[in-house]
Design a protein around this nucleic acid. Structure first.
Lengths: 290, 290
DNA sequence: CCGCAGGCCTGCGAAAACGCGTGCATATGC
DNA sequence: GCATATGCACGCGTTTTCGCAGGCCTGCGG
């Protein structure tokens, strides 16, 4: 009764994904190989680990037990890899950074360029996504987040405070100036239930014209003149097709933070990135507030 | 930079044993394979893990770091295997029991016979050794120990109290009875520094004649008439060539315990063994004390 | 000085593991 | 009712991994 560690790992992935194909993709191997490893593990244990059903592999209690321990072993591996990559004082090798798309596109691009120029030996991977990647699982080494909390086992540093305001195309801006009490179209984020009371009270002609579930599209719509948008100061100020309109006074918004796992915070590559990022953001602090 | 779990495990063994051959033996694989896995891991990490020296593989800091995490992963695997083997309500499969040689030879043999007869489906392995096997590492499922403490993460049950007394060949017994103040030879355990004060005081003719580092040999020497021996009651009473002599009054000695890891204590196979062991020992309690 | 043992590297052939393509079963949608 | 997508089993050929045997180096003891 001997169980290979790689088979334990495979069982964990299969329980997690629920299908041979899913586990294979996650492991970067062919699904046939997953099936063979399961068969081998079952033979080694003399126990059935999965029921072969029409819609996939259904784990037995034994498989779930193994998966639980595989999870813990995987956490241990994560920590090992973090510590390994934190070692070594050379500024070379891979570095993965994540940040929201719009922040990268309109604010951080110069930081990336400058960093690459300064450290050509570091292979920089940028994950532009609004998803909160799991830094414990090494989905990224460093994250720039729009959130007040650095997170659980993470170390963080505040880069900037932010405010939001209302922006619109120059055409809309002129119209509002001419007739503040007239009809005003807004384009809003899909999740937002309705316009703020303060707007409805001061500008009763306001109405929601469009909803979008993507901030980039939302901003394009505003630039195209579909209506007024509420967005962070830095976006409204940066986008060429938008000007600020006085419908909404500047409101406090989530701060911008840079965070990394405690194990990696002081690692040379991560520190080098911060050394470019932090001065840049410090010099642009005024850009994010009214 | 991807590291196979089996390679992590291999690195752990190599750091622990210090040589390819040792790690290979511990893993049950050819040492050439160990060398290849190390080479593969080094390539994957882009880092040297071992210095190839004349007297073996010397781990670098990185290898030691990996080995530390491999250790934790191995503990996790141990726990997994314990829990897996504790599952299942069938009385079949492997069971490993350890106990001191002399206890097995002179006291537990009937227990083993009876257990095998009762549960022929259970493949019983008996490790007869005075070494304290690590039950956490699954070196055995159940241990019978002569010690007052069940141990750390173990669950235990006292089987019997014990006393020691002095025994010798019938020849020596007669000689002592005839002339208690005459010269009396003792055979003692190598570790014991000298005869107890109580003996030297009441029988000043006592002297240490031989020392042995093995209890079995020590008893044989006493049976052969080389001298008086101090040993547990049950041994002196059981061995055909020995009779009790009044030099030493019965003294309290370490108790006999049965212990198992908490995870395994209630497992069917382990419980079944206790169900044979405990009544047997209970019925023989008087055998172990004066 | 030389044989020997421990420890390692290398090349070769066998064995195991792997990826791919094909085919089958079931569920889903038009 | 038929086409399609998902998910898996099986067989084949290839790649990788493994064990084995021979040889090299070093330190040790006769």
């Amino acid at each position: 009764m001997n169980l290979a560690w790689d088979d334990i790992r495979t069982i964990g992935f299969l329980v997690e994904t629920g299908s041979l194909a899913g586990a294979g993709a996650a492991l970067g191997i062919n699904y046939t190989t997953v099936a063979r490893r399961i068969a081998r593990a079952e033979a080694a244990l003399g126990e059935t680990l999965f029921e072969r059903l029409a819609d996939g592999y259904q784990p037995t209690d034994a498989a779930r037990l193994i998966a639980g321990h595989a999870e813990k072993m995987a956490r241990e591996e994560d920590q090992l890899l973090r510590r390994l990559s934190a070692r070594g004082d050379r500024l070379e090798g891979p570095l993965t950074v994540t940040a929201p798309q719009l922040l990268i596109a309109y604010e951080l691009a110069p930081v990336l360029t400058r960093f690459s120029a300064l450290h050509p030996q570091i292979e920089l991977t940028v994950k532009a996504t609004n998803d909160i990647l799991d830094l414990s699982r090494r989905e990224a080494d460093l994250a720039i987040r729009i959130s007040r909390e650095p997170g659980d086992t993470l170390k963080g540093m505040r880069l900037a405070e932010q405010q939001t305001a209302s922006f619109a195309s120059p055409d809309w801006a002129r119209r509002i100036e001419a007739d503040p009490q007239g009809m005003i179209d807004w384009v809003v984020f899909a999740a937002m239930p309705s316009l703020p009371d303060i707007v409805m009270h001061a500008y009763p002609g306001s109405r929601v014209r469009y909803r979008f579930d993507d901030m980039g599209v939302l901003l394009s719509a505003a630039e195209a003149g579909l209506g007024v948008v509420r967005c962070p100061m830095f976006l409204g100020r940066t986008l060429p097709g938008l000007v600020q309109v006085p419908l909404l006074p500047p409101q406090s918004y989530a701060e911008i933070w840079v965070v990394a796992h405690t194990d990696l915070w002081a690692a040379p590559r991560v520190a080098a990135f911060r050394d470019v990022l932090v001065p840049h953001m410090r010099s642009r602090r005024a850009h994010f507030v009214a």
